[in-house]
């Protein structure tokens, strides 16, 4: 009789556990996210706080070279074809309404307000963000970061701060490059390939693009820079604390997480920033 009662109690407990399991899973995930978010904000604050310390200039310039200068080629290539596709598509759509004269403004505004900052951020995430996460992850698992601690060198100052500042400087500059080359790409497809009048193209661009559009685009670029630099540095720096893996595998997963989280946050923050700026 007692055995039956115990079995009944145990079965009830299992049912309750199964019912609550999804909630506990969601709870744990949310707590993890909030914890990581808080840690990442502190991480960013520490990095920014160390930015203007002695001997940071050369390290920051070097990072601008790695993150910014070495990304120019890929940014130019992507922006050229993005602009060309935009020119092609917008011409194809607008010609049906006899409004092909607006191709220039459509291409320019799309690039300056949205595609320029977003695609630049995504391209830099893929090229430099992944490299940052992998580099820091390897430095962590090979105890190079611990070695900095033992040498009384602040790893956040030495490794993270220059990368964050370099990203904040590089992203708007690369976005500007992206916008310019993209507009040229629109010119190539719209004017040179599809026969649109060149004067109309440049005129509509000049008339419809105002300074606030460009400023908003740069504000987005800075926001994306902070997100990408923080996420990629954070993932690499704490690769050793991952619960799902260790060693080289942790570095690999940290790199993947850095790219995926950065891209998702770029798109989410794009919506948030746009809704605030409009």
């Amino acid at each position: 009789m007692a055995l039956t009662a115990n079995s009944q109690g145990s079965s009830d407990n299992n049912k309750v556990y199964m019912l609550l399991k999804p909630f506990s899973l969601i709870g744990r995930t949310v707590i993890d996210w909030v914890n990581n978010l808080g840690a990442a904000v502190i991480f960013l604050s520490l990095a920014l706080g160390q930015s203007f310390r002695r001997k940071q200039f050369v390290k920051t310039v070097r990072q601008i070279y790695y993150i910014g200068a070495r990304s120019i080629t890929i940014i130019m290539l992507v922006s050229l074809f993005t602009g060309m596709v935009l020119g092609l598509q917008s011409h194809h759509a607008l010609v049906q309404f006899g409004a092909e004269g607006a191709v220039g403004s459509l291409v320019a505004l799309s690039l300056i307000m949205e595609l320029g900052p977003v695609l630049t951020a995504i391209m830099i995430t893929a090229r430099a963000g992944s490299a940052i996460a992998a580099e820091l992850g390897i430095q962590r698992i090979s105890e190079q970061i611990d070695a900095l601690h033992t040498m009384q060198i602040n790893p956040i100052r030495y490794l993270i701060s220059p990368k964050v500042i370099a990203a904040i400087i590089s992203f708007p500059l690369l976005t500007a490059v992206f916008d310019l080359i993209g507009i040229l790409g629109g010119y190539i497809s719209g004017v040179l390939l599809l026969g649109l009048n060149a004067g109309v193209y440049w005129h509509s661009t000049e008339v419809y693009v105002v300074m606030s559009d460009i400023t908003n685009g740069f504000i987005k670029a800075v926001v994306f820079a902070i997100i990408v630099a923080t996420v990629c540095c954070y993932q690499g720096y704490f690769a050793h604390m991952r619960k799902d893996s260790h060693g080289a595998q942790a570095v690999g997963l940290a790199t993947t997480s850095a790219v995926v989280i950065s891209c998702v946050l770029i798109l989410i923050s794009d919506y948030v920033v746009t809704s605030l700026l409009i």
Partner: peptide, 8 residues
């Protein structure tokens, strides 16, 4: 360090 921890 055991693994030297040199900056490669």
């Amino acid at each position: 360090f055991q693994g030297n921890a040199l900056f490669d």
